[in-house]
Amino acid sequence: MKRYATVVAALLLALAAAVVASLALGSVRIPPGQVLDALTGRAAPSPYRTIVLDVRLPRVLLGAVVGAGLAVVGTVLQALVRNRLADPFLLGISSGASAGAVAVIVLGVGGGITTTVALPAGAFAGSLLALVLVYGLARRGGTMTGPRLVLAGVAVSYVLSALTTLLLVVAGRPEQFQEALFWSLGGLGSARWDSLLLPAAVLAAGTGALLTLARPLDLLLTGEEGATVLGLDTARFRAAVFVLASLVTAVLVAASGAVGFVGLMVPHAARAVVGAPHRRLLPVAALGGAVALVVADLAARTAAAPQDIPVGVLTALIGGPFFLWLMRRRPEGAAL
């Protein structure tokens, strides 16, 4: 327990450090002292203050929220399908959300309320559709193996990404390629204060709900039959949590595009540190995801400055090899 508290404290500290660093660094360098003055409201109005509070802070916070959310969703998906290769991006859920969101934009459904309600709603529909499709494809014939799951996820993901780009091209959007890039790889460049509220609220509610479900999630880890004989209605539980996972993913994707591999890497690292039981794992995964994406976005923003590399490019560059490594070193008796 003492060790666990240390881990959480260390992650909180790391998150604070990453946030301050992200606010200070960039095309304009701001001394950390000024950053803290701006954050605590002691700074007089100045360009620094504007950069910190209105430009960088929403982006950093969105990064933290999206990173935490993706890690939580990844953790839960891995328990649901009992496979450590699951991730919202690899299972096609993120691409589904992107396709749904773009469909809303292109078709102009929802009119004026597009960005606040219709966009996440479209993303939700898309993510749910993708998840049902992938799960159905991978399950055919009764048993669901790791390779089948990942193959189904990748295939569905490709189709939906192509559909997203097609929609943008056909609709003749002036910045279609940049938009396509955003929806298929993700980025935090479009963060604004008013686009932050919904993801933050959904993250808090979703993670809170999942924490109360820690015990049934642990039961799922012991196998379908094992969970059933210990009293879990596995079909109903799995369906409910799948819906919750797609909802969280959809809201995140609507705000940041489809950032990949955070939901794959972070749960794995968190499990290595605090073990598999979800009551301990979920908070650590959330904090770890927040730190990871804030740091990744800082790197993406500054590595080739003044070019702003979409953060999803960076996570994919690290995550792809990580995935291969994970595939090779599966534990004995594992399902893949």
């Binding site: 450590r84 880890l221 196998g223 094992g226 073990g275 598999a276 039981p277 534990p331 594992a334």
Partner: peptide, 10 residues
């Protein structure tokens, strides 16, 4: 149960 999963390290 006869089938039991060992994918995660409880």
């Amino acid at each position: 149960p006869q089938e039991s999963s060992a994918e995660f390290e409880l």
